[in-house]
Design a protein around this nucleic acid. Structure first.
Lengths: 258, 258
DNA sequence: TAGTGGTCTAGACCACAGC
DNA sequence: CTGTGGTCTAGACCACTAT
């Protein structure tokens, strides 16, 4: 900032935005490196010549942008870029599925972290969206497997899997432990081998529940993935709604041209 | 909220979070429907028995969650769910490429909107990341096509495409108008047909520049897509960094199992 | 104990929208 | 003109961290 770091009162730009922009510039210029503590709010009050609420507004801009985090009693710190784990989708190979219990554990094996999951089973009636994706009627019964995946103890993924109940009756899919090969193996035994997958990827800000479950820092979006598994006859067998922390994951897809 | 909508001072939960939670609940319960105006901040002051800055803190929580937007002089409104356009990746078919100038125009044709793009050409030296993705040396010259895509006048996508300059010299790829079939057609004419694609999908909060270019409302993340196009010999020919508004797009991928 | 961020107040004035 | 959100002040007290 030019004039001894004071804000320009005549520029028309709100003071808190000027301060935010100045701090942002200093961070990207390396004046404050990742992990560094910013000057305290009271120091910034002196530096910029504005009141503390104004400084807090400025810092909040950077917090919601995800470039700093505040720690109560300690200070405000420049967020180090978090290491991104690349999840290769399009690779739910049968071999990998046979070895263990599904995509997440396959990813774990590849990523070298200690996985654990908790599962809750419930049954519900398909709403509009679920019915449409599963090609059943709204109100039809679906089996719901609500999962919480941990890597080295940290929750890293929420996944809710839904299958038409007509495909899961009298199978271990309706139990917590689906057995070797997971739910897909049980479906195959029942004559419903998976033939194709579709995934729909989006992003949004997390709900408060998701934010606390995934321990998301402020300013961290969630990646949403809806995977639909189809049988060889094109019938949808399962939809899986996943929520991932956007600061930890990147999805990768590969395909051949034409 | 229970006690005549006043906040509970003894609960330990900050007043602004109680107000935010109450408003959030009322919105999801339908008391305030999409498009509805919330009570004015001064009315909420009376309702909850807190000061106006506290009300503003509460409303800001909802704004950064993307569930309301404030309009100066008019009020705070419940954000209607925006219509999501589904972009089918894995479908950059040669036929579609031949018909026009690339993936965006193909999407436009499918989506039924009026597309327009502006392009800036520049040349730069590959940084670490670009060099690694393009399998060249850091510092090698790359041709950069910086694009801004509009649909019906609105900016809906930023895309920066980089190719090793050794592949673009003496081609129209180094000009604004690449000609029929786009850059991929020119590459193919030069003996570099595209064989495979890879895409890496992530999400993050937009930079201020991206937010204003894409006219993103507060609390709207950006989806980032990095597409790498490979030749038949496995050599990377192009990387394309795209930024999309997460409230308008969903990406779809399909593949066959095994 | 001292320093940090977290919360909150009771105002004030400004800029914009709409009648 | 009135009502709306946007900005800002000058404090106060609390809760947490570190020494």
């Amino acid at each position: 900032m030019e004039n001894g770091d004071m804000v320009d009162r005549r520029s028309g730009v709100p003071a808190f935005r000027q301060v935010a922009a100045d701090l942002r510039d200093k961070i990207s210029a390396g004046d404050y490196a990742p992990g560094d503590r910013l000057p305290s709010e009271r120091e910034l009050v002196e530096t910029y010549g504005v009141s503390r609420p104004t400084i807090r507004d400025a810092v909040n801009v950077l917090r919601t942008e995800g470039i700093v985090t505040a720690e109560h009693g300690r200070g405000v710190f420049v967020r180090p870029p978090s290491s991104i784990r690349r999840l290769s989708r399009s690779r739910l190979s049968k071999a990998a599925r046979d070895r263990n219990q599904g995509a997440f554990l396959a990813d774990a094996a590849a990523g070298g972290f200690m996985p654990s999951t908790s599962v809750k089973i419930r049954f519900e009636q398909a709403d509009e969206r679920v019915a449409s994706l599963l090609a059943i009627s709204a109100g039809d019964e679906v089996t719901v497997r609500d999962r919480l995946m941990r890597a080295d103890g940290l929750v890293v993924q929420l996944a809710v899997s839904r299958l038409p109940r007509k495909f899961t009756r009298d199978t271990t899919i309706e139990q917590v432990d689906t057995g070797k090969g997971g739910a897909y193996a049980r479906l195959e035994e029942a004559g419903h081998a998976i033939a194709t997958f579709a995934e729909y990827v989006g992003a949004r800000m997390p709900t408060p529940e998701e934010a606390s479950a995934l321990q998301l820092a402020e300013g961290t979006p969630a990646i949403t993935v809806t995977r639909v598994a189809y049988g060889s006859d094109g019938i949808p067998l399962e939809i899986n709604d996943m929520v991932l922390p956007a600061d930890k994951y990147e999805l990768s897809y590969e395909w051949v041209a034409d």
